[in-house]
Each structure stands twice: as C-alpha cells, then as structure tokens.
C-alpha cells in the first residue's frame, strides 16, 4: 500500500504533529510498509462478519448516579504548565 508524503502531512495536521518534509517522506515509506501487514486483511473474506469492538462480552456496565467529592483544586491544577490560582491558562483562543 502506497502512502504519499502528502497523506502523511495531512494526517500529521489532524494529529497536531509538525513534520519536516524529509521526515514526512521517510514516514510515508515506513507507514506504507507497516500498513502492508494490514493489507493482508484485504485478502480475508469478511462478508457478514460482525466486528469485535470489545475483547470481553460485557454490557451495561454502569455506575449509579451518586455524587462523590471532587479533588482539591490545587491537585487538579498542580501539573498545569501554565495556570493561575483557579484555572489552566492557554494562549488566547479566538472564536
């Protein structure tokens, strides 16, 4: 399966990764090889086969609507790269 540099750059945009041109070129080659494994899947006869989304046959795993205490704000904010006394801070997002 051929993956082009342009595809890699488009996907990198979706994944929010910056790639240099030559990096994208290299990755296009490598990803092409890797999806080669997946290319084998094209050989399979999957007509009428249901997809498996979960490895265990569990369903309706719920919690009751009960309140639990939240975490102290200092702990919530503690790992924030930029924060003030109450919030995380990011560069201004324009709408």
């Amino acid at each position: 399966m051929e993956i082009t540099k342009e595809t890699v750059l488009k996907v990198a945009g979706l994944a929010k990764l910056n790639l240099a041109e030559e990096e994208a070129q290299r990755l296009a080659h490598e990803m092409g090889k890797i999806v080669g494994f997946a290319g084998k899947l094209a050989e399979m006869d999957l007509e009428g086969v249901q997809p498996t989304t979960h490895a265990v046959k569990l369903e309706n795993v719920f919690r009751a609507d009960e309140m639990q205490p939240s975490y102290p704000r200092e702990e919530i904010l503690a790992n924030g790269p930029e924060r003030d006394e109450a919030c995380f801070v990011v560069p201004k997002v324009v709408e």
């Binding site: 919690r63 609507d65 009960e66 309140m67 639990q68 205490p69 939240s70 975490y71 704000r73 919530i76 904010l77 109450a86 919030c87 995380f88």
Partner: peptide, 27 residues
Amino acid sequence: DTASKIYCGCTTAFGGEENTHVCPICL
C-alpha cells in the same frame, strides 16, 4: 439533570468556584 457527571461522581451543580468540580476522570 443528574446529580453527578456522565463518567464520574463530580457534581453537575451550576456555578461553583472554577475547577472545583473536577477529578482525574473528568480532567
């Protein structure tokens, strides 16, 4: 209008000091 959030036990109450209705799950 549930008491707790959709995936954790934090309150859904409106208002409250910023980031005080937060836990590892909803963060």
